[in-house]
Amino acid sequence: MEQKEIELLQILEKNGRLSTETIAKMMELTAEEVELMMKKLEEECTILGYSTLVNWAKVLKDERVTAMIEVKVTPTRGAGFDHVAERIYRFPEVKALYLMSGAYDLSITIEGQTMMEISRFVSDKLSTLDSVVSTVTHFVLKKYKHDGIVFDKRDDQDKRMMVTP
């Protein structure tokens, strides 16, 4: 991949809200060149979306819970893990799914409105899949950092003096 494309991806990954004009200036390109590059990267699914990282714990009415589920499965002939993976990631409440090395096979990150909802997902939807051998569910108690961002805003404070030599 071209160096400029990588630079664009790195800029966007840090801050998806910068305007095309601003990015163009940062990269010493024209706005059109940046537009074209973004379009290309979107079309080839290198850029998959522009999302916002929300700290839902700050939203009082929102009491959603997150859990990580370790899943052991038996791979299916011909499709390996992909087939059962797809059966799992199709559920909208599944936020992330990874194939892992080590003691278990699939790692699911799941979000629900209540603990009950998540336990129902595990017992009704997940455990009933043919290839699923066993599951271990861990509930998240507090999020400190996600996708490289620390949730504690004290971290963002500019601790420098206003004017220095």
């Binding site: 420098r160 003096m161 206003m162 004017v163 220095t164 030599p165």
Partner: peptide
């Protein structure tokens, strides 16, 4: 500058 509020500082070396 330090007496004022909402200052954006481009003065930091």
């Amino acid at each position: 500058a330090s007496k004022m509020e909402n200052v954006i500082s481009l003065g930091v070396g």
